[in-house]
Design a protein around this nucleic acid. Structure first.
Lengths: 168, 168
DNA sequence: GAAAACCAGTTTCATTTTGCAATCAGTTGT
DNA sequence: ACAACTGATTGCAAAATGAAACTGGTTTTC
């Protein structure tokens, strides 16, 4: 947090998230529920290097988008959690997914979640954010799990079924 | 366009726009209606360097987010226009502005546009996109100009009036 | 209780990208 | 002819990235 290029909200958001990896990390914590260093390192589609992941986690902690807690089951492990600021990135990520689905060569398996979130509209995003507040901030659990529904749809697509999301 | 890291829509969007300057350039073309190299170079709040601007314009042309036309008034000048793909970034930029306004130290003058677009909702974004299609793609002109409204509000804030956007 | 596997990073080093200032050649106005 | 302006390019130092090996510690396995 030295000096800012300008006070424009788009610029300031870009100064925090405007690189190739920060939002990937947040995406994996948010949608993949990856909470440890090794989970983020190994199970990522994109294959982030350990030094880059380390640097990004450090920066996201400093920027207040993530919080680190010790893991009771393993003295060396830390559990990374989203903060409210990161949870409020949901609509932005939904828009990124929607744009990517329309203008880039996405794969079907990896875009089904984006499709469902786009079709689910603001209500679904709000429900998802409530669920994230439960998972990461300890808020009361919502009745239904958006995340489970997204994961179900993903697994169905991976399994080869193609009639997902067609609101017939 | 060599190899992609993954087929995830968020990742693919990040591969195109995940740097500190690309969205700044698009923002200036979109909201500031800067259409020439020099306009983008000199009148930007953030002070982009000429080699970076040159590289970014080249990449945005290659990615299909901008299009370049010769300027009839000057043989060396080019007019940069947004493509439909870039115009569809409006909701994303609105979300970036909304998040930035909530979680970064924005300045009042530079965030009034973001505030109005956020308050205007999906309808205002759609109207704005129609206006951009008129300006950049030659589509028929809409009745009312969103851009003029945003600029008005900006100038009112700069002039010192503080009762803008308070939906009393 | 020793060995193996796992953990969160760090170190090293080559390559690439940025940031900044100076420069460039072509174009236009005077 | 000449100065100002056009969209860039060049040179160079600093920073960021990427891949792999490595570290110090922890837990599991045999």
């Amino acid at each position: 947090m030295d000096q800012h290029r300008s006070g424009c909200p788009i610029n300031l958001t870009l100064e925090i998230l405007g690189d190739g990896w920060s939002l990937i990390v947040i995406r994996d914590v948010m949608f993949g529920n990856r909470r440890h260093f090794r989970e983020l390192l190994g199970q990522s589609e994109e294959g982030i290097a350990s030094n880059i992941l380390s640097a990004r986690l450090k920066r996201l902690l400093a920027e207040g988008l993530l919080v680190k807690h010790p893991d009771p089951t393993h003295r060396q492990k830390s559990i990374y959690s989203l903060t409210e600021a990161a949870i409020q990135l949901v609509p932005l990520l939904v828009q990124m997914g929607a744009w990517g689905r329309r203008h880039t060569p996405v794969s079907r398996e990896l875009s089904i979640r984006a499709q469902l979130l786009e079709e689910g509209g603001a209500q679904m995003s709000a429900d998802f954010m409530d669920e994230l507040r439960h998972i990461h901030l300890g808020a009361p659990a919502p009745e239904k799990s958006v995340l489970a529904g997204l994961q179900d749809a993903y697994l169905r697509v991976v399994a080869g079924q193609t009639d997902v999301g067609t609101t017939s």
